[in-house]
Simulated scan of single mutants.
Amino acid sequence: MSLDDEEPLVLPDSPQYTVIDSNETSLLGRLLNPDCQSIYRMIEYMPTAWRVVGRVKGIALSRDRWNSSPPDDFLSTLEIWIRIRNIPVNNFTSQTMHTLASEIGHVEEIAYDPKVSHTKEYIRAKVTFKVDSPAKATRKLSIKNGGTVTIECDYEKIHKRCFHCLRLTHEKVRCPLLRNPAKLQQASDQGRAQKQSSQSLVLAKTKG
């Protein structure tokens, strides 16, 4: 009998062999860019950042609660604030802002009140962002006169991204699209097809 034929080891069904109960108040997280981020340094730093030195051990990097049976998409999203610039004055409405923010992720909040003076050159929106998606910095918007404007988007507290595919999970020197010519060609073909099918975002006309 080979080692592969051995029966798998079975642990006793006892609380001594699990951490489910002891981790009920724990937080779980993930590194966005593990090639450039040290989990050990983060574990040492986070208690200081959260002002809980001496009261915790082993800190995770997001505020998702402990889950003994996490779903497939667990820790695959994060809530971030974005700043949207260059919205045309004739389209400066909450619905326009919501449409533009939804291009980045699921919209949780638009920090804009049409009844209050607006003094910033941008509007802020909180979105749930999929960490494996590109963090797009610009988006073309069709306007009523037949032209287009370039909408710009900044990501608050997001300092690094791949400058080729715009994802947060690696830097350009480790971009899998650049290291794999087949993937690069596939992404290029998909990009051209998407560009041909929809040159720019068009605001839908709704009945008043």
Rank of each mutant, 00 (worst) to 15 (best):
M1A: 13
L3Q: 13
D5S: 12
E6Y: 08
L9M: 13
S14F: 09
V19M: 07
I20E: 13
D21T: 12
S22H: 04
P34W: 08
C36T: 03
S38M: 03
I39Q: 02
I39L: 12
P47R: 01
T48Y: 00
W50I: 03
R51T: 05
V53P: 00
V56M: 06
G58S: 11
P71K: 07
F74R: 08
L75H: 02
L75D: 01
T77A: 08
L78K: 07
E79Y: 00
W81F: 09
I82T: 06
R85W: 12
N86Q: 14
I87R: 14
V89I: 14
N91Y: 14
N91T: 07
T96C: 15
T99M: 08
A101L: 08
I110Q: 02
A111D: 15
K115A: 15
K115I: 08
V116I: 14
K120I: 01
E121N: 15
Y122R: 00
A125V: 03
K126N: 08
K126Y: 00
A135C: 13
A135Y: 03
A137V: 03
A137T: 11
T138A: 09
T138G: 04
K140P: 01
S142I: 02
G147A: 12
V149D: 06
T150L: 12
T150K: 13
E152P: 04
D154Q: 09
K157P: 01
F163M: 11
C165D: 11
C165A: 12
P176S: 10
L178P: 00
P181Q: 13
A182D: 08
Q185N: 10
Q186P: 00
Q194A: 15
K195R: 14
S197F: 08
V202L: 08
T206Q: 14
K207T: 14
G208A: 15
